[in-house]
Design a protein around this nucleic acid. Sequence first.
DNA 1: TGATTTGCGTCGGTGGCCAG
DNA 2: CTGGCCACCGACGCAAATCA
Length: 307
Amino acid sequence: MQFCTMLIPCIIELNNEGAGMMFFADFKIERDFVFKEKYGDSESHELHFHDVLEYHILVENEANFQLAHKKYDGTPGDVFLFRPFEPHWNLVKNAKMPIRWISLLLSPSIVRLIPNGYKLLAPFYAVEAISPLIPASSSSAIAIHQLAKMAIEEEKTKAIGWEAKQFLLVIDILVHTLRHASKRDESISSAERFDDGMEVYPSIIQAIEYILEHFTEEIDVNHLLKMAGKRHTAFYRTFRSVTGMTPNMFIHRLRMQAAIYMLVNSDKRITDIAHECGYSSIHYFNKHFKDYRGVSPREYRKSNEKN
DNA sequence: TGATTTGCGTCGGTGGCCAG
DNA sequence: CTGGCCACCGACGCAAATCA
């Protein structure tokens, strides 16, 4: 078993239009990433969100996608990014035409092993600035599609070194995703619009990249302000519109994801994990952890101990 | 006994409001 | 749309209590 999922009901505000019921899917990843070939004619699961990164690579037939408050028509070859904490669901368009897709789930911690790896995560965190859809017609979607198929084949044949090979394919997919996002970024001066009406702020994305790279260190908000070239009011406003959260919330979520990974995949002391994740105070780390997961770090580790 | 959790006080991050 | 002002509440750290 590579994943188990626990659905936790919760209420979340959607697009200022009131509250809706959805589920937090508590994915526990036993490896850093998992490829899966999927097939469904009634894929109508609840609107849900989770804190792992997910690729949905549509292979056959059409589907409807909802990500946060936006809807998309998915055609074969389209690649969708389901970003951490972004509510999403997908439905087949026609029950008689079941969809096939490749799902790739990965832990953000995977990029710690890659030089400048955190830059690769920007497309997953600039939620409102970078479109979650990589259209089938783009060279990036074609490449990602091929790479995902290769990864599935690797797992089927289980030839020697297949896991390492899959790891390389994941990195390649991440690079294609980043290049696709930045290609669209290059032509934009300060704040222009994507085809689907979303605004892009390269300076904020730069700040996001900086945070992704340095979240385990002490981050000076003034440095971010300088980097973005904005006054604090404008910065907070724009940052929130791009990521859906304040800079501090953003930093804490990244730290919590890293902490959870270390709690489950290492036997380091909780105090050390807190320090490694950027918390100078273990007390504050505990408090955040409990707010984030509902249990203390020690309880979380105990309930997720590997056999 | 060291590791972890809880309680509480202080200060700065955050966002609302308004003017330019 | 951006920047300044300001009030409030959440972030943070310290001390004491509790747990393993």
